[in-house]
Computed example of a mutant assay.
Amino acid sequence: MAERPAALAPQSLQEAILVHVRQMLLEGILAPGEKIDVDAIARDFGISPPPVREALKQLQAERVVSWAPRKGFRVAKLSFADFSELQHITTVLEAEAIRLGVPRLTDADIAQMTSQRERMEQARSAQDMWTQIVAHREMHFVPYIASGMSRLVEEIQRFWEHTDHYRVLYLYKGDADQEVSLHQHVDIIEACEQRDVASVIALMDEHRTFAMTHMRTGMEFEERL
């Protein structure tokens, strides 16, 4: 299995199952609304189905998956309105993390952001979606983690895990969109290097608006089907 984000590194069987399912979501193997094959996942791990169901119950609590009698577990399907609401909440949380974290960034932190951006570009060229996703998350979370507010970072991470696979489905497929997004990352890192909080927040808002605008078409088209 490819490298996982540090935030997703498993420490137990249940956590390993959770990471496995999240990877399937992020790589587009499991699509919104699709039924999750509990038995198949159990076979992947060489275990019986109950531990898989227990892990999926955690994702159900996070609203990443849903469950219904006789229908089993399915990937939660968000409307664009739902997605927009979650992004609005994430924007508020991230802005606070940026305000607290950017002034505390070290030169090593900036180097880490640059390194992860370069990994994204290399992974994109190699068509390695998982590494691209890993590097994207790691880059963005550097200033959040620098805030020193672990609970705040955990909340931001929770919202990313709830919505990140939508970015893969509706944004990462277009080369032109990815090119713009990568250039936006350069600007964000440069503003972080200057410890310019206001510019980082403004650039993040621009980055998010760009993504939302391009994702809206695909999500609303799916809703009409």
Rank of each mutant, 00 (worst) to 15 (best):
K173R: 10
G46Q: 00
G72L: 15
T114D: 12
D128C: 02
R224G: 03
A126E: 12
A76N: 11
T209C: 13
G72E: 06
L78D: 05
S147K: 03
I110F: 00
A6W: 14
R4T: 15
T131H: 04
V168W: 08
G218H: 13
W160H: 09
H207T: 02
V65L: 01
S150D: 15
H20D: 02
A191D: 07
R208I: 12
F83K: 08
E155S: 09
P50H: 05
F210H: 13
H162A: 02
V65R: 01
R99H: 05
T217A: 14
D177I: 14
L182F: 14
T90H: 15
G33R: 11
E54V: 15
Q60A: 13
E85F: 07
A126N: 10
Q194V: 01
M215P: 08
L203T: 04
H136F: 04
E190Q: 14
L18F: 08
I156E: 04
W67S: 08
Q122K: 15
P143C: 11
V92H: 06
P5I: 07
L100H: 03
Q112I: 10
E138T: 02
H88G: 12
Y144S: 02
R167P: 10
A9K: 14
A191Q: 02
L56H: 00
A76V: 01
L30P: 13
E154A: 14
R104I: 01
D82G: 01
M219A: 07
A9H: 05
A61S: 12
E179Q: 07
H185Y: 12
T131Y: 00
R208S: 11
I29F: 07
Y166T: 15
M24P: 05
L225D: 04
F73E: 09
K57W: 01
D44T: 10
I36K: 10
H136A: 13
E54A: 14
T114F: 00
F73K: 04
R70L: 14
P10V: 11
T209W: 07
L59Q: 03
Q132M: 08
T91N: 13
A123D: 02
A42Y: 10
D82Q: 07
Q178V: 12
Q127W: 03
L8P: 12
H207V: 01
E27I: 12
E54K: 15
P49F: 01
L30D: 14
L93A: 05
M149I: 06
M219H: 14
E190V: 04
A211T: 01
T163S: 14
E154D: 06
S199E: 14
H185A: 04
F210E: 04
P143N: 04
L203Y: 06
P143K: 04
K71I: 03
T90L: 15
V65I: 12
D39W: 14
L30A: 15
S79L: 04
T114C: 05
L100A: 12
H207N: 10
L59A: 06
G101M: 12
H140F: 02
G101W: 05
A176T: 05
I201K: 07
S115Q: 05
Q14L: 06
Q184F: 03
Q178S: 08
S115N: 09
L105E: 02
